[in-house]
Amino acid sequence: MKTILNVKNLTKNFGGLCAVSNVSMTINEGELIGLIGPNGAGKTTLFNLLTGVYEPSSGLIELMDQNKSIQIGGLKPYKITNLGVARTFQNIRLFKSMTVLENVKVAMHKNIRYGTLAAILRLPTYYKEEKWVEEKAEELLKEVGLYSLRNELATNLPYGKQRRLEIARALAIQPKILYLDEPAAGMNPQETKELTELIDHIREKYKLTVILIEHDMSLVMKICERIYVLNYGKMIANGTPEEIKQNEFVVKAYLGEEI
């Protein structure tokens, strides 16, 4: 398998608190990876480091792009996004006063090829690109089951559908890596089942590498090929779902016992 992401000795300090400590990971192209751990383990902080929200205190984050290794640690989020990295958030961050369709279209700005002059003068290239954007956005909404709600305001969607809209918007940037931060949070069992199927589907269709944070262990164990486990900011285990289930350090971490 070809490596797409290398994380080496990644550390993030907030004053005297070490939120992520000496973390290393190797992610291969096309993998579906789970990142688990108790509340406060540093999972979202790690995602924020990988996507440019935070700058690392030390360590390397290397993204493979066309057989070149690019050091992305410390880059601005938009620069990392332009390299093909997308994410959703633990707390949903939609444009609530925009429609479902508009939320997806706004994420496609980096793929638009017309310039300011063409937009002002409404040249043929403008209309051609806008038509493509609308068709692509509608295609993505069909994938996540929201096409019939495309003209609805995002704020009016029920919670589970807002999660799906976040995924559609992330797909709109045509990513190579998709980070999902607790995508099943707040969902009922049926919604979680449908979400599991959706994640599996989009990963296969769009040839994505998917890394997800999740507390729903049934979802993690069902779809993830490998799992990394964080506790108090440190990586305490990694392996297949079966290996993780039998790892005494992981069991103790979740039970709150001393390791």
Results as ranks from 00 to 15, higher is better:
residue 104 V to I: 06
residue 111 N to C: 08
residue 103 N to R: 03
residue 231 N to F: 04
residue 42 G to F: 09
residue 247 N to H: 02
residue 174 Q to F: 14
residue 212 L to V: 02
residue 4 I to Y: 04
residue 147 Y to I: 11
residue 97 S to A: 14
residue 256 G to I: 04
residue 3 T to W: 00
residue 234 K to Y: 06
residue 199 I to G: 06
residue 239 G to T: 04
residue 152 E to G: 00
residue 82 N to D: 15
residue 62 E to T: 10
residue 215 H to G: 08
residue 131 K to T: 13
residue 141 L to A: 00
residue 138 E to R: 13
residue 23 V to W: 01
residue 37 G to D: 09
residue 3 T to S: 05
residue 34 G to W: 09
residue 199 I to F: 11
residue 256 G to N: 04
residue 47 F to Q: 04
residue 10 L to S: 07
residue 228 Y to E: 10
residue 156 N to C: 07
residue 91 N to Y: 07
residue 139 E to N: 10
residue 169 R to F: 03
residue 252 K to P: 10
residue 53 V to M: 03
residue 253 A to R: 02
residue 223 I to W: 05
residue 149 L to I: 00
residue 182 E to C: 09
residue 119 A to W: 09
residue 51 T to H: 01
residue 98 M to P: 01
residue 71 Q to Y: 07
residue 76 K to Y: 11
residue 47 F to H: 03
residue 176 K to D: 07
residue 16 G to T: 13
residue 9 N to S: 15
residue 214 E to A: 08
residue 112 I to F: 02
residue 150 R to K: 15
residue 98 M to V: 03
residue 83 L to R: 00
residue 240 T to S: 14
residue 125 T to V: 14
residue 240 T to Q: 04
residue 174 Q to R: 14
residue 107 A to Y: 09
residue 119 A to V: 14
residue 120 I to N: 07
residue 248 E to R: 13
residue 152 E to R: 06
residue 199 I to E: 03
residue 42 G to V: 12
residue 68 K to M: 13
residue 6 N to I: 07
residue 172 A to H: 09
residue 109 H to W: 01
residue 210 V to T: 10
residue 240 T to Y: 04
residue 160 G to Y: 08
residue 208 L to W: 02
residue 92 I to R: 00
residue 252 K to H: 13
residue 101 L to Q: 01
